[in-house]
Amino acid sequence: KKVLATKVLGTVKWFNVRNGYGFINRNDTKEDVFVHQTAIKKNNPRKYLRSVGDGETVEFDVVEGEKGAEAANVTGPDGVPVEGSR
């Protein structure tokens, strides 16, 4: 997949743990970017399912997906594990 941007910060708009996807709002362009649970690189080690929490700040790369921009290599800021869904 073509990389459109790297090390982008954003805020998780919503994430559905059961369906394994959601959207992140980019801090720079204010665009919403699709995020799938497989894109989460560093999950909260205390959680079994990969997820990001609503309102959580995350860092990610933006790649060209089949339906437009999507997140890849999702971590917390500066590469720490994500907090995950509460």
Rank of each mutant, 00 (worst) to 15 (best):
V58A: 02
F34V: 06
R86N: 13
S51Y: 13
G76W: 15
N27A: 09
N44P: 09
G22D: 01
K30C: 09
K67Y: 09
H36V: 03
V63F: 04
T38M: 07
E64D: 08
F23H: 04
E31Q: 09
E70V: 10
P81M: 12
D32Q: 03
R46D: 14
K42V: 15
V80S: 13
R86P: 13
A69Y: 13
F23D: 05
V62P: 02
G53M: 13
V33A: 02
V3W: 05
K2M: 03
E83K: 14
V74H: 03
K13Y: 00
N73Y: 05
G68I: 02
K13T: 07
K13F: 01
V17Y: 11
L9E: 10
S85R: 14
W14K: 05
V8P: 03
K2D: 04
T75R: 13
N16S: 13
R46H: 11
V8E: 05
Y48H: 14
V52Y: 07
V82N: 09
K30I: 01
V52L: 15
N25S: 11
R26N: 02
Y48N: 15
V17C: 12
E70G: 01
V33S: 02
T11V: 11
L9R: 15
K42A: 14
V12R: 00
V80D: 10
A71W: 00
K67H: 11
Y48S: 14
T11E: 07
G53D: 11
A71M: 00
R46M: 11
A5M: 06
D32C: 02
T38Q: 08
P45F: 09
P45D: 12
V8N: 02
K2Q: 07
T11C: 07
S85N: 11
D54E: 15
E83Y: 09
N25C: 13
A72C: 09
P77N: 08
I40S: 01
D78P: 09
E31G: 03
G10L: 00
A5C: 08
T57L: 15
G84N: 09
P81L: 11
E70A: 07
G68T: 07
N27K: 08
R86Y: 12
Y48V: 13
V74T: 02
P81V: 10
K2E: 06
D32K: 00
G55I: 02
A69F: 09
T29A: 01
V17D: 10
A5P: 03
T29E: 02
F34W: 07
G68S: 04
I24Q: 03
N19W: 12
D78S: 14
E56Q: 10
E83W: 10
V63A: 04
G76D: 09
Y48A: 14
Q37M: 11
N73R: 05
G65Y: 02
R50M: 12
Y48F: 11
S85G: 14
V8D: 04
L9P: 07
K1G: 08
L49T: 12
K30A: 08
N43T: 12
K47G: 13
V52D: 06
H36F: 01
I24V: 07
E66S: 11
L9M: 12
G10W: 00
T75C: 08
I40Y: 05
G76N: 10
D28A: 01
R26Q: 04
G65C: 07
K42E: 12
E83T: 13
P77T: 12
V35K: 01
A5W: 06
A71Y: 02
A5V: 06
